[in-house]
Amino acid sequence: MNASALLILIYVLVLASYLGFELISKVPPTLHTPLMSGSNAISGITIVGALIACNEMGYTSIAKWLGMFALILATINVVGGYAVTDRMLKMFKKK
């Protein structure tokens, strides 16, 4: 990877972190648990990396097995995270 490509990734990291800080500090304490389980689901974005790692051909390579293992875990995170967050948010009602 060359320096300018790395720099762009760092740009993205810094700006997204700032944006994250701004947005998340506005989330009311009432919603902190769903925020956590929701962000848990978002951290399942590793699924993208896992899919790429799974794409390896042939079962003899450790890379593929690790990729498949990661894919199962990341899918648990994504599906479970979004589902439980939705289940929780559904309960927050105002009467």
């Binding site: 990734l9 978002i42 990396g49």
Partner: peptide, 17 residues
């Protein structure tokens, strides 16, 4: 993986935590 979406999503979660 030089993948922006992982970095964006990851930093949102990092900031939240």
């Amino acid at each position: 993986l030089s993948n922006n979406v992982l970095i964006v999503a990851g930093s949102l979660v990092g900031a939240s935590g």
